[in-house]
């Protein structure tokens, strides 16, 4: 089996959820070697799914209502957090020059961007805005915000930890800021945010996403991206999880908590 065949076998495994952690590393190497990309079979798998004769189920009406409400909040949030996009879309003349200059300027002071400057697209540029800048933009937006300080636990990763959480219920978005949180090796463990919602069972906080703390960073700002709508956030917790994250935290290692007072 040559490199392309092996890569395609692993890419098929990827579409089926059959890929193990070791296979992930092999696949990454093969993708570099073959020039294939991870979405190689995505469209094919979707087309096969759509060719199925399985009868469509009716969407439960309560679920539909939740989806509409959450969708309308989310669409408003996405747009408000991407004001740059509208400006870029309307400024066709000189866009590429402006984008290239901005990338170079950001790359000059953001070490993580070294070597990443390549073809510029509107989507890529939007994603390269540093979270710290987005956080400042949110703070200056006049949106009603909740802001809580992190309280470190006894976990060794949190010794010397400080920082805060900024959260907008209306936008369903926010940012965590950390100083002194221990750097992690993403291959060994990752940090994961959990959002406790007064409108949900407290045993099942909403997954706020996984994140990493790079070595040598004096401050880290992480966007909060809950996978489900949060009705009334009452606390945020950061746990230590295995590299893939967790659906339900074991809460064996909680490193930081931020809770509403009173």
């Amino acid at each position: 089996m040559d490199a392309r065949e092996r890569a395609e076998e692993l890419l098929a495994d990827l579409e089926l959820g059959w890929l193990g952690d070791d296979d992930e590393r092999t696949l990454d190497e093969l993708l570099v070697q073959t020039g294939l990309d991870r979405a190689h079979f995505a469209q094919s798998a979707a087309a096969v799914t759509l060719a199925s004769r399985m009868p469509l189920l009716e969407l439960p009406s309560a679920l539909r209502s939740q989806l509409v409400a959450a969708g309308q909040r989310s669409v408003a949030r996405v747009t408000s957090l991407r004001p740059r996009q509208a400006w870029l879309d309307s400024a066709a003349i000189g866009w590429y020059a402006a984008a290239a200059m901005l990338l170079l300027a950001v790359g000059a002071w953001w070490p993580g961007l070294e070597g990443m400057v390549g073809p510029v697209t509107p989507a890529a540029l939007t994603e390269l805005v540093p979270p710290a800048m987005e956080r400042e933009r949110l703070l200056a937006s006049g949106t009603e915000l909740f802001r809580w300080e992190w309280a470190p636990t006894d976990d060794p990763a949190a010794s010397g930890l400080s920082g805060d959480v900024v959260w907008s219920a209306a936008l369903q978005a926010g940012f965590m800021r950390f100083q002194g949180l221990e750097a992690n090796d993403p291959a060994a463990m990752r940090y994961q945010l959990w959002v406790f919602d007064a409108e949900r069972d407290e045993r099942y906080p909403v997954d706020g996403g996984v994140f990493d703390v790079p070595a040598g960073a004096s401050e880290v700002v992480v966007p909060i991206r809950p996978v489900l709508p949060v009705g009334e956030a009452v606390a945020f917790a950061v746990s230590v999880e295995l590299p893939g994250g967790a659906v339900v935290s074991t809460r064996e290692r909680i490193v930081a908590l931020a809770a509403a007072q009173g």
Binding site: Q66, L67, A70, G71, S74, V75, V227, L228, P229
Partner: peptide, 9 residues
Amino acid sequence: VQEIFTDVW
């Protein structure tokens, strides 16, 4: 389904 539509938006 809620996760999926969050991703779609």
